[in-house]
Every structure is written in structure tokens, then in C-alpha cells.
Amino acid sequence: MLKNKSSVRIISADGTSDKNLLVPTVLLKHWKKICISTLSFIFILCGSIIYFATSKKEHDITSKYEATLDEVRAMNRQLSWDQSESERDIHQVRQSFNKIDSTIERINAKMKKRGLKTIALQNAGGPIEADEENIELLSEFYAGALKDLDRKLSGIPIGIPHPGKITSRFGYRRNPFTNRGREMHSGIDLKGRTGDPVKVTASGKVVFAGYEGAYGYVVKVNHPNGFETRYAHLSKTNVRKGQNIEVGKVIGLLGNTGRSTGSHLHYEILHHDKKVNPEKYFNF
């Protein structure tokens, strides 16, 4: 088909020259179809290029979006984990400080039994100025320190066994029976009414409970760290020898037995078998 050719004469614009161009006859006959086909092909080719380019861009954007979404999800999971860890840490700290608060309450209860004002730690349960690694150690330290304080306080005769007025202090005094001469008063006298309760000022073990000469009815209690307390002139004893008792227990009733001029409590403190002034132990 291409062997059959037709002559195409090309004339310049001024008409002075012309050229003959041989082209296949089939192209002249079907030039419209060829042009349409060529344009269609070019259009399809451009469309395909645009489609594939757009698809690739969309795929890249989708991939980036999914990757970003995965990172956000991972961050959310990490934040949730960190929050859970933080909540557990806070819970543990609260438990530790609850132990401290419980110990303080026990100490305060014992101070009340001694007739003393309660005590408190400054800023207890307040903001924790420590890093997370030391919070548990800090809590354990305070809990242990308070337990040790509680144990020591329980065995030291602090406070008063009876809230009566002091009628005779520790030291030398005039003989209350003859009103002559001077004698050593080895304890302190607290005025009261017969039958008033008398409380032990520290935890310990009863080493004597009964009647003993000038003491009348008396209770003697041994405590840790070399302390001993004595409660004399009682009308009745409520404990027995060998009994372990806690601070604040009523060990007897106030009376006027033995060498006594009236209803009162004679209270003594001994430290390593040496009698000391009980009034020094009335305040914490």
C-alpha cells in the first residue's frame, strides 16, 4: 500500500517557488483517521502517565499516613503504659505514707494515755521532693524510723500516771508527820481521791504488786533501757507479778495506805537502780 505514492506540490507564500513531495497515497486518503488515532494514542498515553503518577503519589501519601498513624498509636500505648506505671508508683507511695500515718496515730494514742499533747511530723504526707528511684527507700526509712521511735517511746516512762496536783516534789523536804527535820523524798506526790485510776507510764513487766511497808500497796514495773517505775499508797492493785503490761494500763487505784498523810499517789522513777526526779519525764 505504501508503494503507491502521490505527489504533493508545496508552493511558497509569494508563489515564486514550489516543491514536490511524494507521500504514500494511503496517508492522503486516511489522514483524518490517522490524525485521530495518533491524538487518541497521545491522549491515552498522557492519561496513563498521569494516572500511574497520581496512583503512586496516593500510595506514597497513604503509606506515610499509615506510618505516622502507627507512630501515634505506639506513642499512645507508651503514654498509657507510663500513666499506669505512674499510678502504681503513686499508689505504692500512698501505701508507704499510710504506714507512717498509722505509726504516728499509735504514738499519739500512747501520748494521750500519758496525759501529753499529741505529736506530728511536719509536712507528713505532703509533696515528695525525691526522684522516683528513691521514693520507696525514703518511705521505708521513715517507716523504720517511726517504728523505732514507737518502740523506744513505749519503754520510756514519759508522762503522768495521774492528773492530780503536785503536793510534794522530788528532793529534801520537811518531815510531814513531825514537821521537824528534813528527809529525802525520792519521788513525787500527786493529789487525788481514793479510787482514782492510776496508769502505768511505759510498757514493761510487773516485778512486784502487793503491800510493802511504808509504800503501802505498791506496783513496781520494769521497763527497757534500765527504767523502773513505782506507784505507791494505792488502795488496790489491778495487776500481778510477772504480767506484761502496755503503756496506759490502769495498774491500781489511788489510796492512802502505808506511810501516808492523805489520799495521794507516790510516784517514783529509777534509772539503772538510781532514783531520779519524775517531773523531768512529765513532758516529751
Rank of each mutant, 00 (worst) to 15 (best):
H264D: 11
V93L: 07
L21E: 04
I160P: 03
K241C: 09
S17A: 15
H59N: 13
T257S: 07
E212N: 13
G262V: 01
S6W: 07
D60I: 12
E268D: 14
K147F: 11
S186L: 12
H233T: 04
S37V: 08
P278F: 07
I36C: 06
R114F: 05
R173L: 08
E132V: 13
S203K: 05
V247I: 07
D150Q: 11
V206L: 03
E87R: 14
S80I: 11
V239Q: 00
L39R: 12
A143W: 08
I34R: 03
I90D: 09
G144Q: 07
F97H: 02
I34Y: 08
T118A: 07
L27I: 12
T237K: 08
E58T: 12
A13Y: 03
S154A: 15
S102A: 14
S186I: 04
G216E: 05
Y51L: 15
G115H: 03
Q122V: 05
R240I: 09
N222M: 09
S102T: 14
T25F: 00
V207E: 15
Y65M: 13
V218A: 08
I119T: 12
N256V: 01
I160Y: 06
T16P: 10
Q243C: 09
Q92W: 09
G144L: 04
P157W: 01
F227R: 02
H91V: 06
V23H: 01
E105F: 12
N76Y: 11
V93C: 03
L153T: 04
K165Q: 10
V218Y: 01
I44Q: 09
K64V: 10
T38V: 10
S7G: 12
D189R: 07
R73W: 13
R180M: 14
H59C: 10
G192A: 06
K274C: 06
K236W: 03
S260E: 04
